[in-house]
């Protein structure tokens, strides 16, 4: 925002190059890439309450528990979790980060009608879906302390925000359609160059000390075919805004679409709504160009048992 009225980004980059060149000796200038104009900004988003403002009374304890479940899901809600992900794997900064489907924005837009199940869902029911699909686990029953704590945490984060409004930074950014049709092979190249360092060449992530550090992106320990991240437009938006971690908005829209297509064209756990037939399950739940479920990739039908 500062100085953009007269200071073009090109000028700024030029000055940085000159400055780094003037230091002498061997220096390594940071290879910062300039975000595209379409890059979703975090700047104008709603600011949830500061962590230090969290109450310490009984209510605050539930908020804290919700935050702990969110960041250490296996540890605090293990019986409902069927993979090695945490809520915070896809909702960065403990559910605070704009354009990473922040909790404070999600809280405001429920209850809502969802095409996914054809009825109005409460916020707690929406959270159940996260466990069933994204966590490839079991939905905690309504009223379960896990759901209550998560709802309390989300409610607290949304303090002061307008109920019913879609705020900037809500969900994942909706990227414009790619210039070139999203492509698996180009995506595999983006993956090798920008993702494999952390998530490993085989997409299985990396663990240390018995804990998943870089989440598995596909395969048995990742989200299942019913998860939102399995839809290419969601993955592309998340990746564009947030990946590689710490370097958000450095990939082009095209790279984000391509690598999302690559990631979402891999095997993963079955959709829990599986009807017994891949064709029928695709027709009922995945009838979209953004889902590769039931499509033939590398000679194999994705989702086939």
């Amino acid at each position: 925002m500062i100085g953009q009225s007269w200071f073009s980004k090109g000028t700024l980059t030029g000055l940085l190059v000159i400055a780094s060149g003037a230091m002498g000796g061997i220096t390594y200038a940071a290879e910062g890439s300039t975000p595209e104009p379409s890059a979703p900004s975090d700047a104008k988003a709603f600011a949830p309450p500061a962590e230090a403002a969290m109450p310490t009374n009984e209510f605050g304890k539930s908020i804290k528990l919700g935050e702990q479940i969110f960041t250490h899901t296996q540890e605090f809600a293990g019986k409902y979790v069927g993979n090695s992900l945490n809520c915070a794997s896809c909702h960065l900064d403990a559910g605070r980060k704009p354009n990473s489907s922040p909790l404070w924005a999600a809280y405001l837009v429920y209850p809502a009608y969802r095409g996914k199940n054809g009825r109005v869902n409460s916020f707690a029911e929406r959270l159940q879906g996260c466990f069933r699909y994204s966590m490839n686990g079991k939905a905690p029953p309504l009223g379960d302390p896990v759901l209550v704590a998560l709802e309390t945490y989300a409610f607290w984060l949304a303090q002061g925000a307008p109920v019913g409004e879609k705020l900037p930074g809500q969900g994942y950014p909706k990227l414009p359609a790619p210039a070139l049709k999203a492509d698996y092979t180009r995506g595999s190249q983006v993956y090798a160059q920008h993702c494999a360092l952390c998530h490993a060449a085989d997409g299985q992530g990396q663990s240390s000390g018995g804990k998943a550090v870089f989440p598995p992106l596909w395969g048995a320990h990742s989200f299942n075919w019913g998860a939102g991240m399995g839809e290419i437009q969601n993955a592309a938006g998340f990746i564009k805004a947030n990946m590689p971690l710490g370097l958000g908005n450095t990939l082009t829209d095209q790279q984000a679409w391509d690598v999302a297509t690559f990631m979402d064209s891999q095997e993963r756990p079955q959709d829990p709504r599986f009807t017994g037939s891949v064709e029928a399950t695709r027709a009922k739940y995945h009838d979209s160009p953004n889902s590769m479920y039931g499509e033939k990739i590398n000679g194999r039908v994705l989702g086939a048992p």
Partner: peptide, 18 residues
């Protein structure tokens, strides 16, 4: 920060220290 340690994989650390 001073640019005297090589940037390393994907030049992550120079961005972090900035």
């Amino acid at each position: 920060k001073k640019g005297v340690r090589p940037p390393g994989p994907m030049a992550l650390m120079p961005v972090i220290v900035s």
